[in-house]
């Protein structure tokens, strides 16, 4: 992925304290700028965009339409944007749903400001995080689709290895040692795995539509 000079960020968050803090954070950090701020998914969906931001930081738990549905809706229109889900808990089934529907990564609400900045920057450089819990879900997802129907190449050997080790609960550092690669490379593998999940889901949807 290319290095971008200024990363434009949009925030979709209903809690006004957090919204204000995130906005301050990205405004005050060099290399970032705030594109738009939305207090609800409806607002984000109906907004008359001229340009889409590089990254959406989106709360999963929004009132009305939730973050997962919001990603699903915006995904098609904002092709070049990345979606970072902002969530209280990564053990939740909802994180996995969001990733399936088009999110590119997630960050916990209990992260430090530095970690949030790093996560957004990493996303634009092609890297993404994955917890053991999410990894186990992803493994099941890829197993249940027979290769012919998936219309993709499935996962590469390296990607499978990363996924398996993640699902066993190993830390990035441990996996990096075992596979002889850097943590950054691991995150790039994860980013690609998420993209393959998106393609899978779109194919399923298309098949159903044409069936009628």
């Amino acid at each position: 992925m290319e290095q971008v000079d200024i990363i434009s960020v949009s925030i979709v968050e209903d809690d006004n304290r957090i919204r204000a803090m995130l906005s301050d954070l990205f405004e005050s950090e060099e290399g970032f700028s705030i594109s738009h701020i939305h207090a609800s998914a409806e607002d984000a969906i109906e907004f008359p965009y001229e340009d889409f931001p590089d990254v959406f930081v989106m709360d999963i738990n929004l009132p009305g339409i939730d973050g997962i549905a919001c990603v699903a809706q915006l995904r098609e229109r904002a092709r070049a944007s990345q979606f970072l889900m902002y969530t209280v808990n990564d053990d939740d089934q909802r994180v996995f749903e969001a990733l399936k529907k088009g999110a590119n990564g997630y960050i916990l609400k209990s992260s430090t400001p530095e970690q949030i900045i790093d996560a957004v920057r990493e996303l634009t450089l092609g890297g993404a995080p994955m917890s053991a819990h999410v990894a186990r879900r992803v493994v099941t997802q890829f197993r249940s689709v027979p290769e012919e129907n998936a219309n993709i190449d499935g996962l590469s050997d390296r990607e499978q290895e990363v996924l398996t080790l993640l699902s066993q609960g190993l830390l990035y550092k441990e996996i990096a040692d075992r596979m002889g690669i850097t943590v950054g490379t691991i995150k790039q593998h994860i980013h690609r795995i998420y993209s393959k999940m998106h393609v899978q889901n779109r194919t399923e949807a298309v098949n159903k539509f044409f069936g009628r």
Binding site: D15, R17, I18, M21, N61, V88, L108, K109, S110, P113
Partner: peptide, 10 residues
């Protein structure tokens, strides 16, 4: 969780 996260972040 949302409240505590806001507190931590702040």
């Amino acid at each position: 969780g949302a409240g505590l996260s806001a507190l931590k972040l702040k």
